[in-house]
Design a protein around this nucleic acid. Structure first.
Lengths: 134, 134
DNA sequence: CTAAACCCTGTATCTGATACAGGGTAAAGC
DNA sequence: GCTTTACCCTGTATCAGATACAGGGTTTAG
């Protein structure tokens, strides 16, 4: 019996957010016990984990739904449709990875510059470069 | 003269959002013309670009502010402080990159499976794996 | 010198997410 | 069994982040 509370604990998701995802259709409505308690399946657990990851990576609910829809591809979509949709997502994700790597690179520079010294950080000249485009 | 509208156009940011970022302190208040128009600097432009990138990568306003603060390190922070803060951010970013790469890998599998065929996508068995953890 | 295009402020609205209130259910401790 | 505590239910309020709109001034193109 996987109740809403247990699902929340296992995924780290806020318990109210689970209900919210159900109302907006992101997480399918689970089975109910005789007394009306929600009873989730392992499928729900996996799906919610994915949703949380996607949201934390900056995908909107709608985009997340789009990614999930790839797994459910209704009969009216051809493989070619799914393929082009998928590749659009791949491009988007590649861009996110690039951006994150840029930021990471800058932060690494900051970190190594600040090595050891106890002097004020305000004298660190590399910090300014965080804004740059490459 | 870099007005709010021009800044919006150049960054792709919604014009109202710019004002919002000013009210929450994420984007510093710019200079004003005699008639009260905002006049932004290149610094604002760079900063807003960074903010947008950070937000699209799933960092909250607060986290984004934290990243920006690294560039402004007030005198009361030692280099050691900045260093540890920076490394925490690096870890977080590394995790985001890993997650994105997982999703990308799955999508690549989907894409290559769906190659060419005009059959219904619903028969694609790989899609299911999108939820898995590795 | 007028009209369109743009800026200002304040406030309302929307989405995504959480919190809370009022009431029923389950289960641990007597 | 019975009570107490922890949990679930629904509906609604709140909050953050962002966006839209209304009413009015400014700039600029014709």
């Amino acid at each position: 019996m996987l109740t809403r509370g247990k699902l929340a604990t296992q995924t780290g998701c806020n318990i109210e957010t689970i209900r919210y995802y159900e109302t907006i259709g992101l997480l399918p409505a689970p089975a109910r016990t005789a007394s009306g308690y929600r009873d989730y399946s392992d499928e729900h657990l996996r799906r919610l984990n994915f949703i949380q990851r996607a949201r934390s990576l900056g995908f909107s609910s709608e985009q997340t739904q789009g990614l999930l829809d790839l797994t459910e591809a209704e009969g009216n979509k051809t493989r070619a449709d799914v393929k082009s949709l998928t590749e659009a997502h791949i491009d988007e994700i590649s861009q996110k990875i690039k951006d994150l790597q840029k930021i990471k690179k800058r932060l690494r520079q900051i970190s190594s510059f600040c090595d050891g010294s106890e002097k004020s950080a305000s004298t660190c000249p590399i910090l300014e470069s965080l804004f740059d485009d490459n």
